[in-house]
Amino acid sequence: MRPAPAPVDANWIRSLAEERGRTVRFGIRLHTISRDSAKEAWGAADRLLGDLSDADITRAQSLLGASESVGQQRMLALHGGSRDGLEISPNLWAGVGLVRGGAGTALVGSHGDVADRIEEYHALGIENFVLSGHPHLEEAYWFGEGVTPELAARGLLAP
């Protein structure tokens, strides 16, 4: 696992905005892969890349690397175009970004693991979460049936 980058102090950013008469809110865009056990979730993550050849990944990386987007360049730097070391932080997997532009990280683990990470992000000041998965319907089901009750029990969902 690579060392996580130092978090930006949300209160510092808020104070800068306040000095200018503004307010800010923070959000994050992630995919989720949650299952009844962490082993099942990591297996599902591995299967997403299972049919991709190294040539497929190299081709995708070449196309994505041509982007001038700073965000896209940072995404590419997370995994370096390699299948090795895709868990870049606990339960944070950069595998989607090997072949897809834009949001290429996923929270992967048991329903409790994913809820733990969401709770940690929330504690850092993130208020808005844009979550999805592949395939969309199936991952929405897993999240709704497994993670949503965990978040509700922790008081992290609006009534």
Rank of each mutant, 00 (worst) to 15 (best):
D113H: 02
R59Y: 11
S62A: 13
G112Q: 07
E87C: 08
L30A: 10
L78T: 08
A55I: 10
H79I: 12
L76Q: 12
F26L: 08
D84P: 02
T58M: 11
L86I: 05
R59E: 14
L92S: 08
W93T: 03
G27T: 02
D113W: 01
R74H: 13
D36H: 13
I28K: 02
L76V: 05
Q73N: 14
S82W: 05
L64R: 03
L98G: 00
I57A: 03
G102E: 05
D56L: 09
L48H: 07
S69F: 09
N91I: 07
A106P: 00
V96K: 02
P90E: 15
G85F: 06
G95M: 02
L49G: 12
I33M: 11
R59D: 14
Q73I: 11
G101C: 01
R74P: 06
S69A: 13
A44W: 09
A94Y: 06
S67H: 11
G80W: 04
A94D: 08
L98F: 03
G101R: 00
T23L: 08
A38W: 05
L63A: 12
I88M: 09
G65W: 12
L30D: 03
L48S: 06
G95K: 00
I88D: 04
D36R: 12
V99Q: 08
S62Y: 10
S110H: 01
I33L: 15
G101N: 00
H79Y: 12
G104N: 04
K39W: 06
G112M: 02
A45P: 01
G81W: 10
H79P: 02
A38N: 05
T58R: 15
V96P: 00
I88G: 03
V96I: 15
L98M: 02
E68T: 12
P90W: 15
G109I: 02
D36C: 07
T23Y: 06
S110L: 01
S110Q: 00
